[in-house]
Amino acid sequence: MKKTMRQMQKEQTKERLLETACQLFSKQGILNTRVADVAQAAGVSHGTIFLHFETQERLVTEVVERYCGGMAARLHELTCSCGDVREFLSAHLEGIMEFEPFYTRLVIENRFLPLGARDAWITVQSAISYHFSQMVEREISLVRTDVPLSVLFNTWMGLIHYYLENGDLFAPGESVIHRYKNVLCGNYLKMITTERMKHDAKSI
């Protein structure tokens, strides 16, 4: 079906509003951003923005769903072809680094967001937990088997998210992931792999 000029303009405006909102969310916080702030930053009137998002809840949900969908797809793309554990962990961090400011906001605020937005965030983590479990199965001879898969995964996520959440203390004014990538990757690897691999890692 051919779209009318009007429809196309409406979609373009919406796209611009989603992008602007995402930038503001990253900079000043998700729940700290009002619909009016987005309208002002995007240079549209109150009336126009309310045509697209009737409430702040709607705006937050749509922005988070949109960008979480993108993050899940990107993380899938980066981690699905990874051979070994180290490659997987560093690809995961590379992916997060691509959208670190918005990702960090989600780490901090996800519990307080509308259910739909929180579900979108959980879906991003599920995409990773899926590839993580595949990787552990492939590397069964190297990864510790006396720790449940979920604890291996949650320890990794907990570590990354703790550093991001407290980025002001770990890497003020710079990318937390960029600065700690090797520290996080290398040390987590030592914790989850068996003696044989540790020995190999030492010699690197």
Binding site: S126, P148, V151, F153, N154
Partner: peptide, 24 residues
């Protein structure tokens, strides 16, 4: 089962998440 196995969620919570996300 996937949410419980890979992320260790509580069963009831995992079910609620699964119902909501599948519905999308």
């Amino acid at each position: 089962a996937f949410l419980m196995r890979t992320q260790g969620f509580d069963e009831k919570a995992a079910r609620e998440v699964a119902v909501r996300t599948l519905a999308q």
